[in-house]
Amino acid sequence: METFFKEAVVPHFNFWIYVIIMMIGLWSVIAKNNLIKKLIGLSIFQTAILLLYVSLGVKEGATIPIIDHHAAELSLAGDAAAINPDAIANPVPHVLMLTAIVVGVATLGVALALCQVIYKDFGTLEEDEVLQKIKALHDDV
C-alpha cells in the first residue's frame, strides 16, 4: 500500500483528481433528476477529459509554446540547436482540446434548447415527471 502511494498516487496526483472530477460528472448524469443539473454534470465530465489531455503536454520546467523572434530567425538560418524543444510545452494537445471546448459549448447549447422544448411540451424539467407524463400519453392511446 505504501509503495502504491509512493509510486502511483503522489507523482501522478493530478490524474487522480481528474478521475474524481470525472466520476462527479458521471454520478450527476446518472443520479440527478433535473435535466439542467445533468447537463452541468456532462460539462464537468468533459472538462475532466480535456484536463487529462492538456496535462499530457506539460513538461517539467517548460514554458508556453511561443518561440521568440531571435531564436526563430536563427532556426530558419539553419541553426538546429537554436530552439530547444524540451523548454517548450507540447502544443499539439492544446490545439486538439481547443476544438473540443468549442464543440462542447455547441452541444451544450443544443441540449439546453432541447430542454426548453421539453419544458414547453411537458411543463417540467424533472426527469421522473417527464417520464410519467410520457407514460400517461401512451396509456391514453
Binding site: 439542467i36 452541468i40 508556453i64 471546448i101 468549442v102
Partner: peptide, 29 residues
C-alpha cells in the same frame, strides 16, 4: 499548465458563453 490559448478560449467560451446559455434556459423554464 502553459496552455495560454486554451485558457483564453475557456475564459470566454467556458466561463462566459455556457453560463449565459444556462441562465437563458433557466429564465425560459
Amino acid at each position: 499548465m502553459g496552455a495560454v490559448d486554451v485558457a483564453f478560449t475557456e475564459a470566454t467560451v467556458g466561463a462566459g458563453v455556457s453560463t449565459v446559455l444556462i441562465v437563458a434556459t433557466i429564465l425560459n423554464t
